[in-house]
Design a protein around this nucleic acid. Sequence first.
DNA 1: CGAACAGTTGAGACATGTCAATTAAAGTGG
DNA 2: CCACTTTAATTGACATGTCTCAACTGTTCG
Lengths: 256, 256
Amino acid sequence: MMSLQVESSLSAARWRPSPSLSQPTLKLERDERWSDFMEVLGLLRYEGQVTHLDNTRMFRRRRLKAGQSALCAGQAFDGLYVVRLGAMKTSMVELDGGEHVIAFPMKGDLLGSDGICQGKYMSEVVALTDCDLIKIPAESLFARERSGNDLELVACWAISREIVREQSTYAMTCLTKTDVRVAHFLTIQARRFAAMGYSASQFILPMTRRDIGNYLNVTLESVSRAFSALGRAGIIGVNRREITIHSHEALLNFGT
Amino acid sequence: MMSLQVESSLSAARWRPSPSLSQPTLKLERDERWSDFMEVLGLLRYEGQVTHLDNTRMFRRRRLKAGQSALCAGQAFDGLYVVRLGAMKTSMVELDGGEHVIAFPMKGDLLGSDGICQGKYMSEVVALTDCDLIKIPAESLFARERSGNDLELVACWAISREIVREQSTYAMTCLTKTDVRVAHFLTIQARRFAAMGYSASQFILPMTRRDIGNYLNVTLESVSRAFSALGRAGIIGVNRREITIHSHEALLNFGT
DNA sequence: CGAACAGTTGAGACATGTCAATTAAAGTGG
DNA sequence: CCACTTTAATTGACATGTCTCAACTGTTCG
């Protein structure tokens, strides 16, 4: 499997020492893993058909510990990333220096799509838990010799999905009442956990109340109160970040 | 120019009656115009290089009167649109039936990028003024025979820009005070008018107070009050939808 | 001309922000 | 391993900004 990498167009575009030949002095080098096109498609849950499948092309992975930064605003665009494992936080820095949380990318989500149009990333992405990313290098996407596979197509598809996701979360903020927003937020989270293959009724939120509040445009105290209120109503169980959803139905219809 | 259309790959992909042969009974048919790749790039303000320029390909235009619908949620994806003229409103319909305004596309903006990932448009787009759109058909973007030009690349670039724009407007909603949001909104509008070649200090807003309020997550009354307050402060002049900005500086720094 | 719509302004209710105190958990360093 | 500090979370009391409801005006359109 490693030998495939040597022949791949990726290593042709930017040479780096072959993992199998590298010295064991650098632990990072030895820990490097690779993913193929099929795994990327699976992670993204790409439904479309693939006409030109070049599965000899391998993509480098990148490990992050909780708290580490994955992408920085202003940094030169060097590719898109697919989350293979873990939870992250995407945020933008306002003119006045304040932070605004935009999304909480998790397994199967795309990072860096805001970096294409200006050649630099426009948002900050930090790991909330230990993470594992797959890098799709810019050269693979936009090199002149991008012949013979559908990477670009899939990228367009995935970026479009990002647009939809963002529109939906933005639309969520039109829900006036804090409780309703938080309830909706939990519904979304539950669905995402389900889509990732985890339980939709019990999960650990990877983010703080402050981050949730920032994301929903309310204060962290309001979020806390909303959690407590939903708990008192018997709809969910709350123990710090551990959430148990007793009734998805009631959660969805809360406030209507 | 009309003759080009007959040979174009577009008309090969989906046949329709030639404008020059159509009966004069249908005025719409006679009014059809076409735009080339270069005009699309210019409208989008695409800065990147184009390596495979196929300028024989022509794109059909679409005219809309104020109030007409350009795209509907659920409608099958049939391509992307570039605004050539006019102002529009993009919105999503909530679970509870409420509308949420997402953007106000104007000249040079892209429509329909949320339709790629599920094969159907996810938002409503209506014309606020008379509009002129350029259609980039789905076949041109994703057909197997998408050989020899950079349309896909430019699409990716433009969609990425949509992401950035949306992130920015979403981030704007973190500004707590209504007045500050409205001030920021006006700054953005002024810059957009400037980018389109119009005056940044005097312009007519194409949207209602209700739409602005929905967009900024405040009520229309609050928007009206904010306008009045900014007017009393001498920063802007307000006469219904006609806005005069007396100090861009003060507008930007308002509330800090 | 009347009807419908867009916009402005006011008064009161109420939800949320702000400030503060408390507790629990997690990380830090001797 | 145990203080010690820091951070996250919860809850209360109060202030306030925004929503709601309402009246009124000007504009557009049939």
